[in-house]
Deep mutational scan, measured.
Amino acid sequence: SPISQSQFIPLGEILCLAISAMNSARKPVTQEALMEHLTTCFPGVPTPSQEILRHTLNTLVRERKIYPTPDGYFIVTP
């Protein structure tokens, strides 16, 4: 029987999409709110552990794709 394939999207890209959507909705993007958003909006995607989430967010900050503030994470705009 054929095996169904799913699209692979890197966690960093999913986080950027989620942060962008939450920023547009003016929702604060904390790590907890981000986990909740991922569970709700990406039900088929396994939720990352806190450690993996933190590591991926730090990587995105180093890559200058997002930036942290006391009010949460935001997408870097050119």
Results as ranks from 00 to 15, higher is better:
P2Y: 15
P2F: 15
I3R: 11
I3Y: 04
S4E: 02
S6A: 12
Q7G: 15
F8K: 05
I9N: 15
I9K: 14
P10A: 11
L11K: 01
L11D: 02
E13P: 08
L15R: 00
L15A: 10
C16D: 02
L17P: 07
I19C: 03
S20D: 06
A21T: 07
A21P: 00
A21C: 05
M22Q: 03
M22V: 02
M22D: 01
S24L: 08
S24K: 14
A25Q: 11
R26M: 06
R26D: 12
R26Q: 11
K27A: 08
K27S: 09
T30W: 09
Q31G: 08
Q31D: 08
A33S: 12
A33Q: 13
L34G: 00
L34C: 09
E36S: 12
E36H: 07
H37D: 03
H37F: 02
H37M: 02
L38Y: 02
T39G: 13
T39A: 11
T40D: 08
T40W: 03
T40I: 08
C41I: 05
C41P: 01
C41T: 06
F42T: 15
F42S: 14
F42C: 15
G44Y: 10
G44V: 06
G44T: 10
G44H: 11
V45Y: 14
V45F: 15
P46Y: 02
P46K: 03
P46E: 08
P46H: 05
T47R: 11
T47Q: 08
P48L: 03
S49A: 06
Q50A: 12
Q50F: 13
E51S: 10
E51T: 07
I52M: 15
I52Y: 15
I52R: 07
L53D: 00
L53C: 06
R54W: 02
R54Y: 06
H55F: 09
H55G: 15
H55L: 07
T56H: 15
T56E: 07
T56I: 15
L57F: 02
L57T: 04
L57Q: 00
N58H: 13
T59K: 09
T59Q: 10
L60A: 03
L60W: 01
L60N: 00
R62Y: 15
E63P: 00
R64L: 06
R64Y: 04
K65R: 10
K65M: 04
K65H: 13
Y67P: 01
P68E: 14
T69N: 10
P70G: 11
P70C: 09
D71L: 06
G72V: 01
G72H: 02
G72C: 02
Y73C: 14
F74Q: 12
I75L: 11
I75K: 03
I75P: 10
I75E: 13
I75Y: 11
V76Q: 12
